[in-house]
Design a protein around this nucleic acid. Structure first.
Lengths: 114, 114
DNA sequence: GTAGTATATTAGCATATTCTAATATAATAT
DNA sequence: ATATTATATTAGAATATGCTAATATACTAC
């Protein structure tokens, strides 16, 4: 049953190692999901967008482009990632597409940020 | 005083745009700091390490290498980033270096995770 | 239909990230 | 001193990320 250990130290706490491995296996899905969310929030532009939606509810691509002083293309690309990641939803009104927080994660985000 | 806008729509809510820009400027430092933390937590290996320290208090590089089943080198590299980012501290005991959560961010992390 | 506006997508490039492999450093034991 | 163990650092390669520039799509107005 001995697993290969990277260090051959004598005083390994094998109980701890096995317990910790089991712990990580049990938390694996949660960790993967959270890592995905954190990696989305780990980009300054995207985090600014989330901050904006926590304050202003909804904005269109054009507004964001103006506020962030970036071209429309990278804004659209970030919004797509946030939408694919489940953090945002959008809604078209004529030519304009408004983005806003996905209500399913709104409280999570409020808890995570600040 | 008119700033250049990326979209020439007629019904721009200039008040909103200016308010949002000011808001982001005021939050800028907080956003930069948080984005840095989120980008650290956005890597699965590093997030697993943080989960482990939220449960087990402290572990050595060797333990982590065994638990995560990764070579010592990448573990050390991740630990360095987490330490540089202020999330971890370490303490040498003989040949062994133990890492643990920086007590200054422990509560923040508990709030952020889960 | 055409023209104009808002948004989305794509290709390509520059940079960042994360691993491997090798080597360096630090501490212990002999 | 040398040998061994634990950790840290470095160079390099593979992949991921995020921008620019160009183009495509969707809607509106004429």
């Amino acid at each position: 049953m001995k697993e290969d250990l990277s260090c051959s130290r004598v005083d390994v706490d094998t109980k701890l190692i096995e317990s910790a491995k089991l712990f990580l296996e049990q938390k694996n899905i949660e960790i993967e999901q959270n890592a995905k969310i954190f990696s989305l929030l780990g980009n300054e532009v995207r985090l600014k967008i989330i901050y904006l939606f926590l304050k202003y509810e909804k904005m269109c691509v054009c507004d964001l482009s103006d506020v962030l002083q970036m071209k429309q293309s990278p804004i659209s690309q970030h919004l797509r990632k946030l939408k694919d990641g489940g953090l945002l939803k959008n809604q078209r009104e004529g030519m304009t597409v408004f983005y806003f927080l996905n209500e399913n994660v709104q409280n999570d985000l409020k808890g995570i940020i600040r």
